[in-house]
Amino acid sequence: MSAVGAVTRHRLFWPVVALAVLLLACVLKSNTFLDIAVRDGHLYGGPIDILRRSSVLLLVALGMTLVIATRGIDLSVGAVMAIAGAVALSQIAASDDPGSLAVVLSAIGSAVLVCLLIGVFNGFLVAVVGIQPIIATLVIMTAGRGIAMLITGGQITTVTSAPYKTIATGYWLGLPVAALIAGFFFLVTALITRRTALGVLIESVGINPVASRLAGVRARTIIWTVYILCAFFACVAGFIRSSDIMAADANNAGLFIELDAILAVVIGGTSLAGGKFSLVGTLVGVLVITTLTFSVTILGIPANAVSLFKALVVILVCLLQSPVVRRRLRRRRTAPVGTAPAPVEVPA
């Protein structure tokens, strides 16, 4: 009982169940969905597609998790993605030799620089000026797309460049490069936050910025850092998204991805009130959302019912996760023996 109870009580239990149910539904509809075959020298199949598709959202949600842990929020990630693609692709398009690795690397370098500047700007507004994060990042969210439009001249910039194309559609050791990139940054972030004190410092800033500052934590530096990191991850996500279609679409690249990213973080069990955060939880959240989007096509949900279908699944998962519902469910299952109330995170 206690082992089963521990599993079902884990805050990631229901998201994982949702993921499994979605995958099962896909397999029932299309029996070969989970098969992985080798095609053209790389792996091919539903799970590989999901991994590759997850990479963009995982990168964005990764940065978002850190920002949310400091009690902040970053709405500018979608616009940063658009800017990253616009800067990189317009440079490649303007060069004489779009296929050369040097051109691609310098284009990526300058796009990263621009995105880091945006991160510095966001961090400055939040950490130094003290503007509410939701307002501070709203500036770039609205203005950023305009900047991207200016860079691309209002057009969809299309390029042909083999090295750039590799970012999203290439394979290395049979695995999609995009997933490897996202996986790499995920592992590095996990190691740095969990094997050094950084993770604890971020959480302490999120739980009580004043107390942590009085305790000697450089809250301002940490807040500034997470916004820069978030912009950087969004930038890499922007490369993957624009490489995926080999075009910089300033209007649509990363549109509304901030909402998906926040949702992934919340499904993963990180509180919007800041404090404790779970990167593994975010990973599960990202997989749930990506699989959900994918299953819409596999299951053949009619186009005008897609939003409703997604909303229902998300509401169900969130309900099952909420402490109140879980306490009710457990009480019904385990008779009225004095069950300890679920540990409630108290936002300071």
């Binding site: 969809i156 995926d244 279609i245 649509n252 690249a253 096509t297 596999i298 949900i301």
Partner: peptide, 25 residues
Amino acid sequence: IASETGNFTRAEGKTVMEGFLQAYP
């Protein structure tokens, strides 16, 4: 055999087509 929205954009057209290719051989 299938009809889904790709929202007039390249990225979504690609995503939806990937799903179609998995679901319908």
